[in-house]
């Protein structure tokens, strides 16, 4: 089983916002308050214990190991057969309207079944989702790691446009992938004691910049309610153990 992941190298990032705009273009994300799949936030210049920092938070959905957004989805589970785009293997799984795709670990939304209740939007501690109310029937939306593109041999739109080559995308289950190496070398994810749901986006950079990023954007509050019934008891108990 693969787990796709992204490492963002803040030493190579110049904060140009190309990634955020390319994503909006690729997926026709409407321009409305809070509507985005991919964003760049600026941090500082601010004092840190390691010196002055002026850095960026290029962010997107973390495709978490324990996606609380999936847990809170109230849509009735339904069985679905998934097929790996790499080797054609299939797997059956019961899913709600939002789910973690079994072959890539990418968290996706089934737009046909999404009822637009916004529970997942509320639950995500990273504010990675938005509810698209410009549609006749509102639907949740967020980053898909460009599943539609990578399954057709392309790279994610943000990776393709990144002018500093700061965004490294790959498979964490492959120990030789660049992402695996960078994670082993100490790339960090946005977590706190309270919020530890196994995000799969990592940042690397100077100590001062990582410090500034963590202080400004590591989620400190639990934004979701535990859910009693669901298909994935094991994972939920895991989350409970963590929080």
């Amino acid at each position: 089983m693969s787990q796709y992941a992204m490492v963002i190298d803040l030493d190579r990032c110049v904060g140009c916002h190309a990634c955020a705009v390319a994503c909006r273009a690729e997926w026709k994300v409407p321009v409305e308050e809070g509507y985005r799949r991919n964003w760049v936030k600026r941090i500082g210049p601010v004092a840190t214990p390691h010196g002055l920092s002026y850095t960026f938070y290029p962010g997107l959905c973390n495709h978490c190991d324990h996606p609380v957004c999936v847990d809170v989805c109230p849509v009735d589970p339904e069985e679905r057969t998934f097929k790996s785009f790499k080797d054609g293997r299939t797997k059956k799984m019961t899913i709600k309207a939002t789910y973690k795709e079994p072959f890539t670990g990418i968290v996706l939304i089934d737009k046909e079944r999404c009822i637009g209740c916004g529970a997942c939007v509320e639950a995500c501690p990273y504010h990675a989702r938005y509810l698209d109310e410009t549609l006749d029937e509102p639907k949740a939306d967020k980053c898909t790691f460009c599943f539609e593109r990578i399954s057709r041999g392309e790279v994610p739109a943000c990776v393709k446009t990144c002018i500093g080559d700061a965004r490294i995308f790959g498979d964490l289950s492959d120990p030789n992938s660049e992402v695996s190496k960078l994670v082993k070398a100490g790339a960090r994810r946005l977590e706190s004691k309270v919020v530890k749901i196994g995000p799969n986006v990592y940042w690397k950079g100077k100590k001062k910049d990582i410090h500034a990023l963590m202080s400004a954007f590591a989620p400190m509050e639990k934004t979701w309610e535990e859910v009693k019934n669901g298909p994935d008891r094991l994972r939920r108990s895991l989350i409970k153990a963590l929080v």
């Binding site: 140009c16 190309a18 955020a20 390319a22 273009a25 393709k160 446009t161 990144c162």
Partner: peptide
């Protein structure tokens, strides 16, 4: 959409936010 020209030795597939 606008992307960098993959043939370009200067920018490849990349364009900045404005180019996009």
């Amino acid at each position: 959409k606008i992307e960098g020209n993959p043939k370009s030795p200067a920018n490849g597939t990349r364009v900045c936010a404005r180019g996009n």
